[in-house]
Amino acid sequence: MRKVLAFLLPTMLFLTACGGASTPAEFDQDGKSAGAVETLESVEVTDAGPDTAPEVEFDAPLDITEQGARVMTEGDGAALEAGQNVSVHVLSLNPEDGSPLQNSYEAGAPQTLPLDEELQEVYPPLYEVLLGSKVGSHVAFAIPAEEEVPQSQDVLLMLQVISAENPPQKLSSEEVAELEEAGQLPTVTLNDEGVPSIEFPDNEAPADLVVKVIEEGTGEEVTEADTIAANYTGWSWQGEQFDSSFDRGEPSEFPLSGVIPGWTQGLSGLKVGAKVLLVIPSDMAYGDQPAQGPAGPLAFYVEIVEKVSAE
Rank of each mutant, 00 (worst) to 15 (best):
V122P: 06
E199A: 12
S252A: 10
E55V: 14
L256S: 02
D51I: 15
S236H: 12
D59V: 10
E148D: 10
G183M: 06
E178P: 01
S87Y: 09
G19E: 15
Y123E: 10
A177Q: 11
E57D: 10
E44W: 14
G194Y: 00
A21P: 15
A36L: 10
F254P: 00
P261W: 07
A299M: 07
A229Q: 08
P196Q: 05
L157H: 01
S92Q: 07
D76V: 15
D192P: 09
E221N: 11
E118C: 12
A17R: 15
D76I: 10
Q241Y: 08
T233R: 07
E253T: 14
E165L: 15
S33Y: 10
V213G: 00
E118I: 12
E121C: 11
E215N: 09
S282I: 08
Y105M: 02
S92E: 07
W237M: 00
D288G: 06
G258W: 13
A205C: 07
V155A: 07
A60W: 03
V45C: 01
A107C: 15
K3C: 13
V155L: 09
T187Y: 12
L126G: 04
T16V: 15
Q265F: 13
V210Y: 00
I198G: 02
E66R: 06
V4W: 04
L267V: 02
A79Q: 10
P255E: 12
N94W: 02
A140I: 05
V56D: 01
S42T: 08
L101K: 13
Q184I: 08
L101D: 12
T227Y: 04
T16I: 15
F27P: 00
V161F: 04
S104D: 08
L190F: 05
A48W: 03
L298S: 01
P297K: 04
E41D: 13
S197G: 08
K307S: 08
E240R: 12
A109G: 13
E146D: 15
V129T: 00
P24C: 09
V43N: 00
E148I: 14
L93W: 02
V135M: 07
V90T: 04
V305S: 07
A291K: 13
N191Q: 09
V161Q: 01
T46P: 04
Q102F: 09
T112G: 05
Y301Q: 07
T223G: 09
D51W: 12
V56F: 02
D226N: 06
E204S: 11
A25G: 11
V135E: 01
E180S: 12
G266K: 03
E38M: 13
P206H: 00
E303V: 11
T223M: 11
G183Y: 03
Y286L: 07
T65G: 14
E106K: 14
P95H: 03
Q151L: 15
A299N: 03
P54R: 01
E253K: 13
Q67N: 14
V43F: 02
G35M: 03
N166F: 12
A78G: 10
F200R: 03
Q169A: 13
Y105C: 02
A164I: 02
D226S: 05
V279N: 04
F27Q: 07
Y127A: 06
T46R: 11
A164C: 08
P144Y: 05
V195Q: 06
A79I: 11
K212Y: 09
D154V: 08
P290K: 15
E311L: 09
D116W: 05
V43Y: 03
P167Q: 06
L278R: 03
L185G: 00
A79H: 10
E303W: 02
N203H: 11
G219Y: 00
L93G: 00
L298E: 06
E306I: 04
E178S: 08
